[in-house]
């Protein structure tokens, strides 16, 4: 099937099989490998991207569902030279170790802060329910999100 979607501001028209997942479009057709696949039951959140501005799991979306949509991936929010504030907060708070869950975690965290600006530690922890990290014990991820949200609870990075 032919679909048209905008990824990180660039419009693409692609011819893909109907059973193609959004994450496959992103990784394999567009070569944007920052979005990761960590499970096959839609729980780990490593594949999280923004679909029309909201965090979704790109492993659980079909090509047809994103026809006409706008998708933002980790590559679309900042660069090493001009980091998104959430990316910077993750670095400053040591909120990543192996880096595999990180893109999905950052994409969800941005969405979380946008939908709930008055976050505290408990709300961040609840808000990250859909993202698994095996390295950090979440401690520094929570700090990074709070820091980025401008909460006092984040403390100094």
């Amino acid at each position: 099937m032919q679909i048209t979607l905008t990824v990180n501001g660039t419009q693409h028209t692609l011819d893909v099989p109907e059973n193609t997942l959004l994450v496959e479009i992103i990784r394999e057709h567009l070569g944007l490998t920052g979005t990761h696949v960590g499970c096959d039951t839609s729980q780990c959140g490593a594949c999280t991207v923004h679909l029309d501005g909201r965090a979704v799991k790109s492993c659980s979306m079909l090509a047809g569902q994103v026809d006409g949509a706008s998708v933002t991936t980790i590559e679309g929010i900042g660069t090493p030279e001009a980091l998104h504030p959430m990316q910077a907060a993750f670095r400053e708070c040591h909120a990543l170790q192996c880096g595999f869950c990180t893109p999905g975690m950052i994409m969800r965290a941005i969405d979380l802060v946008a939908e709930q600006p008055d976050l505290d530690s408990k709300a961040v922890r609840a808000g990250l329910e859909g993202n698994l990290c095996r390295c950090t014990g979440y401690h520094n991820i929570v700090r990074a999100v709070l820091h980025s949200a401008g909460s006092d609870q984040g403390g100094a990075p």
Partner: peptide
């Protein structure tokens, strides 16, 4: 507590894992 060199590639989606 030096910030990590490796972070810049990971937080921007530029890591290179085997499946990439």
């Amino acid at each position: 507590s030096v910030l990590r060199k490796e972070d810049l590639r990971f937080i921007t989606g530029n890591g290179r894992y085997t499946d990439d």
